[in-house]
Design a protein around this nucleic acid. Sequence first.
DNA 1: TAATCGTGGGC
DNA 2: TGCCCAAGATT
Length: 315
Amino acid sequence: MAEKELAATAMRWFDENARDLPWREPDVGAWAILVSEVMLQQTPVVRVLPAWRAWLARWPVPAALAADPPAEAIRMWGRLGYPRRALRLRECAVAIVERHGGQVPTQLDELLALPGVGTYTARAVAAFAYGQRHPVVDTNVRRLVARAVAGEPDAGPATRPADLVATAELLPVEPARAARASAAFMELGALVCVARAPRCVDCPLASMCAWRASGRTAPVGPTRRPQRYAGTDRQVRGMLLAVLRETTGPVHRDRLDLVWDDDAQRARALAGLVDDGLVEPVGEAYVLAGDRHLADRRIPGPRPAAGPEAGVDPV
DNA sequence: TAATCGTGGGC
DNA sequence: TGCCCAAGATT
């Protein structure tokens, strides 16, 4: 009972307060929605907006992206973070061309089988692009349901099957309305029922919120967060990739040496980038994956190559 | 299950 | 300033 009421109230609020996001326009196709969902994985909306427009202007259909080398996708990804997503999105485009005739598949299991598409993204596409009735559970929805329904101050660290079940029970029966309810829950979680300082004063669900009814109990223990960034391999990877991204053609390793002092850590980070398929070694230099054809460009380095360069020959 | 994987803005 | 956090996926 209260469940239906929750969705109905959230949707009424959504009618008046939804942000004007371009991927919510009615004529937006499944590919554009899929691209937005991947970009929005752990990346704020404001940073995604321009990247999404540029990406779709260049690759309006999956086949277009599939036809370009990974390096182009990595560059276009810019500074959105987690560049493996760019790689996977391109692999995703390849899979869509090979397995689905260039059309984003409609079935949940087919979507889940795509590279870089997990529990959340598959359901988001099925619901928002195709109007199917699936629970769409992201961090916002989990937090909102944990508070409003379970009366807890926060959700657990990862999405579990039980989260999908709990959210599914809140959704209206009619598929299109269910999808809209999911969007409304997400928006409420993103704008009102936020993590740090929830704005219960502005929340339409306040009167039916279990957490608020309990007096907004505090979290039990300090939720551990091993998130540090400074000095990690992640930071070094980011700095190395930034240099490669902004350079056309091979970057000599002596140049990459300038990026980070710790030899062992720098080597580890670089090896990781190669291992992930983001970067390729070319002789004594490195390029973004798929840019080996630029190896005949002059490689900036202190020592001009004498004789035929080892390892530069195309395979 | 928990760790890993970028980046930048807000407080 | 340093920490928290943002529409997760993968191993």
